[in-house]
Amino acid sequence: KRPMNAFMVWAQAARRKLADQYPHLHNAELSKTLGKLWRLLSESEKRPFVEEAERLRVQHKKDHPDYK
């Protein structure tokens, strides 16, 4: 399984919050909304998630050196 990218790291927590706020939204609508919200974030707001995704990528490479 591939490591999560920055969006997926962020969306993991954001999806729970959004689903709690809008329990009537279908998963497809949640995903579209999350995409729009992510694009509205500034680079500095995204930075911690980009850094975490990079950490996960490096760890994955270490754990699975033959993964392509």
Rank of each mutant, 00 (worst) to 15 (best):
A13L: 05
L56D: 15
K62F: 03
A53M: 03
L25V: 03
M8E: 15
Q21H: 04
E43A: 13
H60L: 07
E43T: 12
L25M: 04
N27A: 14
K36D: 05
K61P: 10
S31T: 05
V50N: 09
A14V: 00
L37T: 10
V58D: 11
P3G: 13
H26G: 14
L34C: 02
P3A: 06
F49T: 13
A28N: 11
Q59F: 07
W38K: 12
K1G: 04
T33R: 14
M4D: 07
Q59H: 05
D63S: 08
A11R: 00
E45F: 15
V58A: 09
Q12G: 05
N27M: 13
K62N: 09
K17I: 00
E43P: 14
H60E: 12
H60I: 10
R16D: 05
H64G: 10
R15W: 03
M4Y: 05
L34R: 00
E45D: 15
L41D: 01
Y67C: 11
T33F: 12
K68R: 11
M4F: 10
K1D: 04
D20Y: 04
F49D: 15
K36T: 03
A53Y: 05
S31Q: 13
A14P: 00
V58H: 14
L40P: 00
T33M: 13
P3T: 11
K1E: 10
M8Q: 13
H60Y: 06
T33G: 07
H24T: 11
Y67N: 12
Q12R: 09
A14D: 00
E45H: 04
L37K: 13
K46M: 02
H60W: 07
K68W: 05
K36Y: 01
F49V: 14
E54V: 03
G35W: 04
Y67S: 14
W38H: 01
L30P: 04
R16N: 05
H60A: 11
K17T: 01
L41M: 15
K1S: 04
D63V: 08
H26C: 09
V9A: 15
V9H: 10
R47E: 09
A14S: 06
P48V: 03
Q21L: 11
Q12S: 07
E51W: 02
V50L: 06
K1T: 03
Q21C: 12
K17V: 03
R47D: 09
K61Y: 07
H64W: 06
E45S: 13
D66R: 04
E54A: 06
L37H: 07
F49M: 09
T33Y: 14
K68C: 14
V9N: 13
S31F: 03
A19M: 08
F7S: 00
N5M: 00
R39W: 02
V50I: 09
A53T: 06
R55P: 12
R47Q: 06
V50E: 09
R55M: 12
R57G: 11
F7T: 00
S44T: 07
K46C: 03
D66N: 09
H26Y: 03
F7A: 04
D63N: 08
L18G: 00
L40D: 15
E29R: 14
L25T: 01
K36N: 10
P65Y: 09
L18T: 03
P48D: 07
P65E: 12
R47K: 12
G35V: 05
S44Q: 05
A11I: 03
S42N: 05
P65W: 05
V58T: 11
F7M: 12
L34V: 09
E51I: 01
G35C: 05
P65M: 09
T33C: 10
P3H: 05
N5K: 14
P3V: 04
R15Y: 02
K62H: 05
V50A: 09
L30Q: 01
K17L: 03
K61F: 04
K36W: 11
K46T: 07
R15L: 01
H26M: 03
K17W: 04
Q21T: 09
L30W: 03
V50C: 10
L34A: 01
E29G: 13
R15A: 04
E45Q: 12
S44W: 08
L30N: 02
R39C: 03
L30T: 01
K61N: 12
R39N: 12
L30G: 02
K62G: 12
H24K: 15
M8P: 00
H24D: 08
V50F: 05
W38Q: 00
V9Y: 12
R57D: 13
Q21V: 06
P65L: 07
N27Q: 10
N5L: 01
R57V: 07
R55E: 13
H24F: 03
A14G: 04
V50Q: 11
D63Y: 02
R15E: 01
T33P: 02
R16K: 14
R47V: 08
Y67T: 13
N27K: 14
M4G: 11
A53H: 03
N5I: 06
R47F: 03
L56H: 06
K1V: 01
E45W: 15
M4R: 10
Q12Y: 01
G35L: 04
E54T: 08
E43F: 15
M8K: 14
P23E: 15
R47H: 03
A19N: 07
A53L: 04
R16I: 05
P3D: 03
P48M: 04
D20H: 02
G35P: 01
M4H: 04
R47T: 11
A11K: 00
M8V: 12
V50G: 11
N5G: 08
P48I: 03
H26R: 13
W10M: 00
R57C: 08
L30C: 03
L41Q: 03
E51C: 02
L34I: 08
R57K: 12
H64M: 11
H24A: 08
K46W: 02
E43G: 14
H26P: 13
D20Q: 11
R47W: 02
V9W: 05
S31W: 12
F7W: 06
R2K: 12
Y22F: 13
P23T: 15
D66L: 04
S31Y: 01
A19L: 13
M4N: 05
R39A: 09
R16V: 08
D66P: 11
F49W: 04
R39I: 01
S44K: 03
D66M: 06
M4P: 07
K36M: 02
R2Y: 04
L37A: 12
W38P: 02
S42F: 09
K46V: 09
R15M: 06
R15N: 01
E51T: 02
K17F: 03
N27E: 12
L25P: 01
P65F: 10
R39M: 07
P3I: 04
P3F: 07
D63F: 04
F49P: 11
E43H: 14
V58M: 09
W10P: 00
H60P: 09
K17M: 03
Q12I: 06
H24Q: 13
N5D: 06
K46D: 04
R15V: 01
Q12D: 03
K61S: 11
L40K: 15
R55V: 10
Q21W: 13
K62P: 11
E29L: 15
V58Y: 03
S42K: 13
V58G: 10
M4V: 07
